[in-house]
Computed example of a mutant assay.
Amino acid sequence: MNIENIKARKSVRTYNEENISPEILEKIGEFIKKADNPFNIPIELRLLDANEHRLSSPVIIGAKKYVAGKYKKQINGEVAFGYSFEKFVLYATEIGLGTVWIAGTMDRKAFESAMDIKEGEIMPAVTPIGYKADKRSIRENIMRKAIKADSRINFDKLFFKNDFNTALNENEAGKWLIPLQMVRWAPSGVNRQPWRVVVEGDKIYFYEKRTKGYERDNVGDAQKIDLGIALCHFDIATREIGLKGHFYQDNPNIATPENTEYIATFGLGK
Rank of each mutant, 00 (worst) to 15 (best):
G174P: 14
G242Q: 11
E4M: 11
E17V: 13
A110C: 10
E44P: 01
T105K: 07
A114R: 04
E4V: 08
Y131A: 02
R210Q: 09
N251M: 11
E4C: 05
N218G: 06
I75S: 05
L25H: 05
N165S: 11
N251H: 14
K87L: 04
A114V: 04
G220S: 03
V79K: 12
S113H: 03
N169H: 02
V199M: 04
E170R: 09
A8Q: 06
I178D: 02
A92H: 10
N154T: 13
T14M: 00
Q74P: 08
I178Q: 14
G267Q: 04
K157H: 05
F206D: 13
S137V: 03
L177K: 15
K157A: 00
K132P: 14
S56F: 07
R216I: 15
I32M: 09
G189H: 02
G62R: 00
D202Y: 01
E86T: 11
I24M: 06
Y262A: 13
E18K: 15
S57F: 09
K212R: 14
E119I: 13
T14S: 05
V183N: 03
G174M: 13
I229G: 11
R239T: 07
K72Q: 01
A110N: 07
A186S: 12
T238P: 01
R152D: 09
K7Q: 15
G96H: 07
G213C: 08
K34Q: 08
D221K: 05
Y248K: 05
F160T: 05
E200S: 11
F234A: 03
N2Q: 08
H246N: 15
E258F: 04
D49V: 02
D217R: 02
D116W: 12
G98D: 01
G228V: 04
T105C: 07
G242I: 08
T260Q: 01
A103K: 06
I142K: 08
T93H: 00
